[in-house]
Design a protein around this nucleic acid. Structure first.
Length: 606
DNA sequence: AGCACGCCGACT
DNA sequence: GTCGGCGTGCTC
């Protein structure tokens, strides 16, 4: 006897609909109504049919009324795996958000034609000899350039903070080695990277290492049909290396053995769509649910990674037997340069660049793109083109990004994060505008600067020197010794003293003054932990509240109750403001909670 | 969201 | 008397 009831999660952003609804399964849909399939169901009070997914099947319902029947099964393919449903529920609860919003990141838009062709190919593969060829086992006793304990820890499902190898594509090699441990054991690995350029690098390296049939790209920068096919394949085969950007952490991996994030401090991991969950946080939740290994791989740890280390939640493993890169902070140099320390490019760095550029590419990292700023990439290019008439000048910035440059002599001017990889490495690296980078108004300036400088320095050729201009103090010392975590640890200690994230969690509440005040009270926040209110447009206010991690579940649940209350009852509060802003908006763990929406940060889209 | 139920002012 | 205003509640 098959279960007769389908418990359905509705595809709706409304918080009041964010729970399971029971539907009777009509006889005609008995076969098709499997867990995970997309369905259409009547929602009487809304006067229409809505789409949703069968989260689970059941034999009985606790609903008192008469159950409505499923209207249709949209497709026979189960697109919502039970573990992904559990993940979406937990992630949404933690963020006081709606599970269906998380599922929009986890499940790409259905492509009917792609689905048909995928089903035919899948059936053909099964018919061939009953199973998909698992291929030759990949031996992976260790991750190259790391102590043997790293591979053992990944195989054992540990949580790790790993320092990347400081050489061009060293992090790619590390990520590939980590993936091989999982894939070699017949399990799947999710590898998340900040952007599509990284996806391409990692995919190419993995295809060489484990074979193209074991590598899957799941990022949104491919045609919708290809993306949907990759999504279906990820959910159907074990032993795959799944590569993508932030939403890859929700991929439906079969027998997940590892989730690895490269450079988790990169702001690209912050999801702009509601409920605005950082991929690192989703990965941490998934690691707990799946019991798989978790690796945060970076040259310079994020404050969050450092916190996890301090808690003992993660263990730290570094690369083995490598000399740290040669870094010279010019502000700490003795000699003639002291007089010239306010020059944009100090004489020693200038000399090194002009000598190195004869042999190969030299990297100049600048603060911002364009010709308008005094230190923009365009203006720098013009200046240097004049100064080095014999060298080719190449510019790479956010708008015109270059992935790679050759080994031939060139001056490569790049904004931070847009540095091309040089074949064979850069012969010299000049990190300019250091002061400007540290002058940014952000909670994360120090860790960001360390991270982007470290990433640039790692592009150096063996034996080449990087010059850090205009920065002294602990940051310069840490880079010169390649001990970034010392500074990040100090940063974290300061944030603990000041009760700032990530030492505490935050919730940003925006809306009607009365609604915000009620939400603060409902969440049981101490007055000393309420920052604001700050007046926003249209008579709205914003407050940031902070709370300890241990109170997270409780605070999120209370805020969610408030959101539901405002979404249903008391519409009068909404009509007071003609701008149609909801009475209350909640954003948990905004990465820049004190910058404000007017600066364009922290706004979430549906 | 969007529909139905419910309790007060102008109407045949 | 009762028609319909929209404020309030609910969605299996």
């Amino acid at each position: 006897m098959r279960p007769t009831i389908a418990r359905v999660v509705l595809d709706s952003p409304l918080p009041q609909l964010d729970r399971l609804f029971d539907y009777a399964i009509p006889a005609a849909l008995q076969e098709a109504a499997r867990p995970g399939v997309r369905v259409r169901v009547p929602v009487r009070a809304a006067g229409r049919v809505m789409d949703g997914w069968i989260a689970e099947l059941a034999d009985e319902s606790s609903f008192a009324g008469t159950l409505a029947e499923l209207d249709a099964v949209v497709s026979p393919v189960p697109v919502l795996a039970p573990d992904v449903w559990a993940l979406a529920r937990r992630v949404a609860d933690r963020a006081a958000g709606v599970a269906a919003d998380v599922l929009r990141l986890a499940i790409p838009k259905r492509q009917a034609r792609a689905e048909q062709s995928w089903l035919r190919a899948d059936a053909a593969a099964r018919a061939e000899d009953g199973a998909v060829d698992p291929g030759a086992p990949v031996p992976a006793p260790r991750v190259p350039d790391y102590p043997a304990e790293l591979a053992a820890a990944v195989a054992a499902g540990e949580r790790l903070v790993v320092q990347a190898i400081p050489e061009p594509d060293g992090w790619v090699a590390a990520l590939v080695g980590l993936a091989e441990v999982a894939v070699g054991a017949g399990r799947s690995a999710i590898l998340a990277v900040p952007d599509r350029h990284d996806v391409e690098r990692v995919t190419a390296a993995l295809e060489t290492a484990v074979g193209a049939d074991r590598v899957l790209r799941v990022d949104a920068d491919q045609p919708a049909a290809a993306r949907y096919r990759a999504f279906l394949t990820a959910g159907a085969r074990a032993g795959l290396a799944i590569v993508g950007t932030r939403s890859a952490v929700y991929a439906p991996a079969v027998d997940l053995g590892l989730i690895a994030l490269w450079d988790d401090g990169d702001s690209a991991y912050q999801e702009p769509l509601a409920p605005g969950v950082h991929a690192r946080d989703a990965a941490l939740v998934r690691q707990e649910l799946a019991g798989c290994a978790l690796v945060l791989l970076a040259h310079s740890p994020s404050a969050e990674a450092e916190r996890l280390l301090e808690l003992g939640w993660c263990r730290s493993i570094g690369f083995a037997a490598r000399r740290p890169p040669s870094v010279i902070p010019t502000a700490l140099q003795r000699g003639g340069d002291r007089l010239a320390e306010h020059a944009r490019i100090p004489p020693s760095a200038w000399r090194a660049a002009s000598e190195a550029v004869v042999a190969g590419p030299v990297l100049l990292q600048v603060a911002r793109p364009g010709d308008d700023a005094p230190s923009g990439s365009g203006r720098t290019a013009t200046e240097l083109g004049r100064a080095f008439p014999q060298a080719r000048v190449v510019v790479s910035d956010g708008a015109h990004r270059l992935a790679e440059v050759g080994p031939e002599p060139a001056l490569v001017i790049a904004t931070r994060g847009a540095e091309p990889v040089a074949v064979g490495g850069y012969r010299a690296i000049l990190l300019l505008d250091g002061e400007r980078m540290l002058a940014r108004e952000s909670l994360r300036v120090v860790e960001d600067a360390l991270r982007t400088w470290s990433n640039a320095i790692a592009l150096a050729a063996p034996g080449a020197t990087a010059y850090l201009v205009g920065v002294g103090g602990p940051v310069a010392t840490a880079l010169a010794r390649w001990r970034q975590s010392e500074v990040v640890r100090t940063e974290l200690a300061e944030r603990q003293a000041l009760r700032l994230p990530p030492a505490v969690r935050t919730a940003t509440l925006t809306g009607d003054p009365a609604a915000v005040e009620a939400a603060v009270a409902a969440a049981g926040i101490e007055t000393t932990d309420v920052i604001g209110p700050v007046a926003e447009q249209d008579g709205l206010v914003r407050v940031v509240v902070r709370f300890d991690y241990r109170r997270g579940a409780e605070v999120a649940a209370a805020l969610r109750t408030e959101l539901v209350r405002h979404a249903t009852g008391r519409r009068a509060a909404r009509r007071v403001h003609p701008a149609r802003a909801p009475a209350l908006r909640v954003r948990m763990d905004d990465p820049e909670p004190f910058v404000g929406e007017r600066a364009g940060v922290g706004r979430m889209e549906r």
